[in-house]
């Protein structure tokens, strides 16, 4: 067993893996074995794609990114959501060849939409893939998700990171594509979702990337990290661990300060980072709901669970999407994927 001395103690790396080098590969074989009724896997390019792809005259919806955020993105491939997902190494953007292969696999003649989380590497690799696809006559548009309010100074940074809103956007845009909406319409819809959604996350622990073998950061027993992303990177501030009510306040308040939600209907999403039990996520959701009620924000729909994770990190994030009638109708539309399924 690999052991690393760090932060004053010895950390054994106890993980359910065969070989550090095979984590992504072995996991994709598992996805294929478990969900053969829904998806196929191109193992060479590490692409999970719909069993029935390409679907004629339907816009292909693709996402992808570093692995370690499961079920995002491969777990959202299927009816009413993604047509394909590209898996990079853990926390490393996939390469353009993967997105290009995925684009060709799902192009049904109506063009392809790339859903990209706003990280420098992801944006550049998807951009190159789009250029490769354009050279072969496939029309590709991209939407960049950048919803993390923890990044305050977006003028002097690579911009806000793409986090929880990605799940809601993939569901809603995927439903619209399933209904036959064209590429231009979907780009507009995705833009509206981006404009109306915000997220904020926190961590109780760092996370351990298998190849690194040690936690990304170490918190004292009485500390939490507010404003984290989804790659084990440190956040905005380190504060004393309080009650779930106090933590919910620290997550929801910056979101409400960033966008006017008063009088609106929202889809409220409390997401687990991978290492926090559902019992705690529901406690957080209850606190979030109380804050929203007091602020005059109506929770029209909700989602609670581990959907965009950061390996074994303990913690959660809150995403609020100001939803119009169309978004709510598309949210309710049938979805049937390994990670999200209802209404079929």
């Amino acid at each position: 067993m690999q052991e690393v001395f760090e932060h004053g103690r010895l950390w054994p790396m106890k993980k359910l893996i065969n070989d550090v080098a095979d984590v992504v590969k072995d996991s994709l074989f598992g996805v294929e074995a478990a969900h053969a009724d829904l998806v196929k896997v191109d193992h060479e390019n590490k692409v999970v794609y719909r069993k029935d792809a390409p679907i004629a005259n339907k816009v292909g919806i693709i996402s992808g990114g570093g692995s370690g955020h499961e079920p995002l993105h491969g777990g959202f491939v299927g009816l009413g959501m993604l047509d394909a997902a590209c898996a990079g190494e853990v926390f490393t953007s996939p390469v353009p060849d993967q997105m290009f292969a995925a684009t060709k696999l799902v192009d049904g003649g109506a063009g392809v939409l790339h859903i990209v989380k706003n990280y420098t590497g992801d944006v550049m690799n998807f951009e190159m893939a789009a250029e490769m696809a354009a050279a072969e006559g496939i029309r590709v548009e991209a939407v960049i998700v950048a919803d993390d309010v923890a990044v305050q100074d977006s003028l002097y940074t690579a911009g806000r990171r793409g986090v929880g809103l990605t799940v809601l956007l993939e569901k809603i845009v995927g439903a619209a594509a399933e209904e036959g909406k064209d590429l231009d319409y979907l780009v507009g819809l995705a833009g509206r979702i981006s404009d109306n959604g915000r997220s904020m996350g926190m961590a109780l622990t760092g996370c351990t990337v298998p190849a690194a073998g040690k936690p990304s950061f170490d918190l004292h027993d009485d500390e939490i990290e507010i404003g984290i992303g989804i790659h084990g990177e440190p956040g905005r501030a380190r504060v004393a661990n309080g009650t779930a009510a106090e933590t919910a306040e620290m997550l929801v308040r910056p979101i409400l300060d960033d966008l006017d939600y008063s009088g609106s209907e929202v889809i409220a999403f409390v997401n687990g980072m991978g290492g926090t039990p559902l019992i705690e996520l529901y406690i957080v959701f209850n606190e979030v709901a109380k804050i929203l009620a007091a602020a005059g924000v109506k929770v029209a729909r909700c989602l609670v669970g581990n959907y965009i994770t950061s390996l074994d990190m303990a913690g959660c994030s809150v995403t609020l999407l100001k939803a119009d009638a169309e978004m709510l109708q598309l949210w309710d539309a049938p979805v049937w994927t390994p990670g999200l399924r209802w209404g079929k």
Partner: peptide, 14 residues
């Protein structure tokens, strides 16, 4: 471009 990934792949590749 095909092997590095991250931001360095597109930058050094280009």
């Amino acid at each position: 471009v095909s092997t590095v990934g991250g931001a360095s792949g597109p930058l050094y590749g280009t």
